[in-house]
């Protein structure tokens, strides 16, 4: 899974978000390291919706403009949980192997 996709799913994990909310959330989650642009976000959202991982939660009109809120589907939650577990296992493996090396120096 690409990092951008992972971060978008993570941004939606706790609550539904609108497009701009996802962008600021991704920025926060990544500690300011990843700054998604709107084009990339909507390309990813289009795919995630087509794949049934993300769906529209509700729509609002704010200042005369449509604002759509997105949320994870159960399949999206499962996929994110699996991915996070996989990343955690990988990270743990990396750290456990680094520890003896770190002890030697």
């Amino acid at each position: 899974m690409q990092e951008a996709t992972f971060l978008i799913l993570t941004a939606l994990a706790a609550s539904s978000q609108h497009g701009y909310g996802i962008l600021t959330n991704v920025n926060e989650i990544s500690g300011g390291r990843v700054r998604l642009r709107a084009g990339t976000l909507y390309t990813a959202l289009d795919r995630l919706r087509a794949d049934g991982l993300v769906e529209v939660d509700r729509e609002e009109i704010v200042e005369g403009r449509l604002r759509r809120y997105y949320r994870l589907t159960p399949a999206g939650s499962d996929l994110l949980a699996d991915e996070a577990a996989r990343m955690q296992a990988n990270a743990q493996a990396a750290l456990s192997r680094l520890r003896p090396a770190g002890g030697m120096t």
Partner: peptide, 30 residues
């Protein structure tokens, strides 16, 4: 319309034209 809202929300104060990187990202995405 929704994307336009996101783009305008992300604009800096006094910004007059889209940034180059942003424009390239939109065209690539399109």
């Amino acid at each position: 319309d929704e994307m336009l809202g996101v783009l305008m929300a992300g604009a800096r104060r006094g910004q007059r034209r889209p940034e180059l990187g942003e424009s390239a990202d939109l065209i690539r995405s399109a």
